[in-house]
Structures are given as C-alpha cells and as structure tokens.
C-alpha cells in the first residue's frame, strides 16, 4: 500500500511494506524500520528509524502538516489522486490572492475583456504592493473585492468567465 506525500512541493512515494511486528516503509527505493513512536507532553514526537532516535515537532494546518525536524521546517501534504485531476482543470478561472491584504486599485470592470498578464487589481499587504494579473485571456466575470476591501491569502478575489463557456 502506498501513499504519495509532497514535502516542500516535491512528491515522494511512501510504501508500507509491513505493519507487524514492526512498521516497515519503503521511500524512494529504500526500506526503513520505524519503532518506538511516542508523543511527549511538550508536543514533540520521538521515534526510531532503523534504531536511530529522531525527534520532531508537528502541527496540522488544514490539510497540511508543518514539521520541524533536524533544525528545518518542512511542509507536507498527502496527495489524494482525485484532487490532482480537479485542480488541473479548474485553476485558471480564479485569481487568488498570493498574500493577505487589501485592494488599493481596480484596473478592470466586470464584463471587460482581459489579456493574459494584464493587471486586474493592485493589492497591498504589510507595506508590499503587487499587481494581480489575469492568468489567461478572457473576460472578467466577477470582482469579489473592491478598493479598500481586505482578503486572506489564497482567497479568490476575481473570476474570469469559466473556460468551458469561453468559446460560446
């Protein structure tokens, strides 16, 4: 049984070879035996990989995990094969905010045609200004935020008309 996990954006296969008497995993072609897993009161986790002690910290942030291990932070996501197909299909209709902040200028009106790369909105967050550009040619279908309005990271701030209708 295998799982695909992305660590800092790079996908890896983690395969379960054995559950008993010891957990055995295979990653990128290498087998590991995992024993002695425990969680300490301070939130740290300990386990042994091939008998070598490993200590790390973990928190869940939505579907992601942030791990602090060996003086370094990693972000891990379990890849659900169903998600991958969806994401590839839908991505380009939405303009998402790459950072939290507020709209300071709107450059296009709803219904107006836009070209790929053209600035739709200027946003600002913590002293940094940036232009949000159209991800493709199309028509601006909806502006979710106006001047002065705020948004969170990854929120959809504008939508282009759906791709499947673009050719109508």
């Amino acid at each position: 049984m295998g799982f695909s996990i992305t660590l800092d954006g790079a996908a890896h296969e983690v395969e379960i070879l054995e559950l008993r008497p010891r957990l055995k995993l295979r990653i990128d072609g290498r087998a590991y035996t995992v024993t002695g897993e425990q969680q300490e009161e301070d939130g740290r986790h300990r386990l042994e990989i091939d008998g070598r002690p490993v200590s790390f910290a973990r928190v869940h942030v939505g579907a992601r995990q942030a791990l602090r291990i060996d003086g370094r932070t990693f972000e891990a996501v379990l890849v659900d094969p169903r998600d991958e197909a969806d994401a590839a299909a839908a991505g380009h209709d939405h303009v998402r905010a790459p950072m939290p902040g507020a709209v300071i200028q709107v450059h296009k009106r709803v219904g107006e045609p836009v070209s790929r790369g053209e600035t739709l909105l200027t946003i600002e967050s913590m002293k940094l200004q940036m232009a949000l550009a159209a991800p493709r040619d199309g028509v601006l279908a909806e502006l979710k935020r106006g001047v002065g309005e705020t948004f969170d990271k990854d929120e959809i701030v504008a939508e282009l008309e759906p791709l499947d209708r673009a050719g109508d």
Binding site: F3, F56, R58, L67, I69, R72
Partner: peptide, 8 residues
C-alpha cells in the same frame, strides 16, 4: 526520508 516518515 526521516521527514517523510514523520509526515506519514
């Protein structure tokens, strides 16, 4: 791999 095991 240690990080991946911890994540898994």
């Amino acid at each position: 791999h240690a990080a991946l095991i911890a994540a898994a």
